Amino acid sequence: MQLPSWSTNIPRKKLYYVFAAIAVLCILGGTLWQGQPRPPAVVNEIPVVRTAVVGNSAVSQRYTYSGEVRGRYESQLAFQVNGKIITRNVQLGSTVQAGDVLLQIDAKDVVQTVSNYSAQVDSAESQLQLAASNLNRYRELLEGGAISQSQYDQYANAHNVAVAGVRQASAQYKQSANQLDYTLLKADKPGIVSGISAEIGQVVSAGQVIVTVVQDGEREVEISIPENRIEELRKTEKIQVSFWALPAVTAEGRIREISPMADPITRTFKVRISLINPPPAIKLGMTATVAVAGNSEQPVINIPVAAVYQTGNPTPAVWVVAGGTVTLRSIQTGYYGKGNTVQVLNGLRQGERIVIAGVHKLTEGQQVSIGGDSL
């Protein structure tokens, strides 16, 4: 073996040691390299997702509204004078008859006013008596020629003024007497007290509603509906009313009145539903549910709620499977139904396949393996 030129100046024995060390290092390096683990091979796993084929069914639309049992006729009573309430004779639910005194306000000031006008009536009557006596005397003097006609006319005019003064004072006295009667709040019709908005000691003003009395007679349910349901409600053929406190009791309803004006706060319209032959167990103030059936059957698509994908975007969406990949598509949802389903108004067609489980683990364009049944 021919040695390299640089090794000619190195003793042969040392040169053998150098080559031996190099050989040992090579052997150890190969051994260590073989012991290192090899990187795993990249395997693209295709997840299996649970899917379903969209179908539709012809069903009749059905809308429900919450309401409250009310009376057909309700009287909202108020005092006709200002004052402080000193007596309250009724409670919520009290049965009253026409003429019953419900509340009373302090009448001290009104009594003083009545006394004042009573004194004015007495004064006016005294003035009338004096004027009548003077008129009789001066009539005799006129007949005897002792006074002129102009003097007599002055006393006749004073008598007429006294007569008018009595009428004026009497009218003021009657008005003050009416004010005294107005300090008593009376029921105008028989019924049941359904609301009281004032207590003893409270100062109220004239015209402020204090007591609501539901008159005996018909019972109704009041509901509020949005403006886009008014025309459909007018055309409905069947209205069913159920009651939260009476699960086994139902009654048929009929639209009696739809408010022509929307509520300024809720922007909904008040609707009164008359109850046809209501059972006696129905009481005022009960919570009622009014179910309104649609006039025609329409195709409806319902999907599981778990299929709806919605994160930061307020628009709901679903994963549509086509060609082994998933695509996110926006949808418009409607009412929630039984069995954790939601109605889809727009965005899906019959026959399309959607993912119904694990929707938050997928990404746009991801390949999937499908499984599942039709909806």
Rank of each mutant, 00 (worst) to 15 (best):
I22N: 02
Q343M: 12
A52F: 05
A162K: 05
V368A: 04
P316E: 08
G347I: 11
P11C: 01
D373Q: 15
S118K: 02
Q350Y: 01
E140A: 08
R229Y: 13
I105K: 09
E352C: 05
R234N: 05
D188W: 01
L102F: 07
A156R: 15
Q172E: 10
K283T: 13
T51N: 05
A293W: 10
S330L: 01
E140Q: 08
G371S: 15
L233E: 06
V54A: 04
Q112R: 07
L328W: 00
V203I: 14
Q179F: 05
E143Q: 12
Q332S: 10
G339M: 07
V355E: 02
V221G: 09
L375R: 11
D263H: 08
A156W: 12
A262M: 04
Q151C: 01
V300F: 03
V161E: 03
N346A: 10
I230K: 11
V18M: 02
V209D: 04
D188R: 13
Y16T: 07
P247L: 10
T95Y: 07
Q97N: 09
R139Q: 15
A293V: 08
V213E: 06
L348V: 09
K84T: 15
N9K: 12
R167H: 01
Q298L: 04
V49E: 02
Q127G: 09
A306T: 15
A124C: 04
A171P: 02
V114I: 14
E45G: 02
S369Y: 03
V214T: 13
T31W: 07
Q298N: 03
Q112V: 09
W33M: 10
V101Q: 03
S205I: 06
S274G: 13
A52L: 08
Y63S: 14
I356R: 03
L246R: 08
Y16A: 06
G324I: 14
K84E: 14
R12I: 07
V308A: 04
K270I: 01
I85F: 11
G339T: 10
L142M: 12
V241R: 05
F79D: 04
S118G: 04
N9D: 09
R62A: 08
V318T: 03
V359K: 11
G324K: 10
R62E: 10
K338R: 13
V355F: 08
V344H: 11
F269K: 12
V81Q: 12
S7M: 14
D100K: 10
L135M: 14
A307C: 02
D216H: 05
I27L: 09
N160W: 01
S5W: 01
K13E: 15
G253V: 04
A23V: 15
V271A: 05
G371Q: 13
S374H: 04
S126W: 13
